[in-house]
Amino acid sequence: MNGSSLHRIRLQRGTALAVRVGAEIRPDEVIGLRREPLAPILVPVARPLRRKPDEIAEAMRVRPGSRVRAGEVLARINGHEVAAPQTGLVLGVSRGDGSILLAPLGPEEPVIGHVRGRVHAIEENALVVEVPAATVTGVGGSGDAVHGELVVGVHNPEDELRAAAIDVGATGKILVGGSRASAEALTRARAMGVAGIVLGGVLDKELRDFEAIQRRRREAGGMTGSFGLLLLEGFGKVGIDPQLFSWFRAHAGRMASLFGADGLLYIYDAGSAPTRRPLPRVGDRIVAHRRPFQGRGGVVVALLEDLHATSSGIPTSMALVRFEDGRLAPVPLANIEATVAPDGR
């Protein structure tokens, strides 16, 4: 998809927005501030009020969910009062020991939108931004929202992104890999400060291993920065469609925003990206999505009449495809998509 599209930025509850509808925002712009709740503390109430624990209900001036500032009155009765020792969120009131459970709020942290565009609407817990960019959608991804300059890290769309090929030159950038990257390569990329990686395919196991490593590092507290991964074609070793790969090459150096969890990549100041169309026709360039041709490109040379059985035995409509390696094979129409160049070819 190209032109402009609406992108929804989810906001964690409690985020104070710093932008209004109509505002133009940049990918690195602070769109709000947020204070993370910290480990809760108990604020004694019954004793300072000289009441029994089960008698504090009538004195309460807050309830669970209330956000209080330091010094704000939590409970008051007969001239006695209890104030909040810190700014925080009230989590509960215990009738057992007559105390308030308060989660202090940490320092203000900036919330970055990671997109460029105009704020279109503000919803409950979300900001909708009109993003003027070429859009590339994938079949999945993982990690954080990131932005950075687009760079191509492999020579051919079928190449694997090797760990040794990732160096400090890719720091802060979104790296277009090829058909696969190992957990080692992904870990190195993250350690080098790469913002994100775009791949044609990845092995499920490699992705799981990488995510497990990240989880352990996060638990150990040794991880900084954000990292996102976009998967374009599927799982396994799957090359990027050559047409799309050429387009990435042509747009290297442009600013891009990657949303791994949403399977989205925006490239700014770019021409239209190649698109996909289901149900290809004779003469269309296609890409296949299932084994044994997954990720391979070719051209439809004929549409077979009637139904034909796949080798799995499923009777279905088939196209005869001449693949780029010269092979001619029948492929279910459901398993191929036409790839349409920006100029409509």
Binding site: D204, G234, G236, P332
Partner: peptide
């Protein structure tokens, strides 16, 4: 694992090989 992930990613495609089916 890869085949199941691909099934998730593209549920409208058909298992073409006996293995995938």
């Amino acid at each position: 694992a890869d085949a199941l992930q691909n099934l998730r990613a593209r549920p409208g495609a058909l298992p073409q090989t006996e293995e995938e089916l």
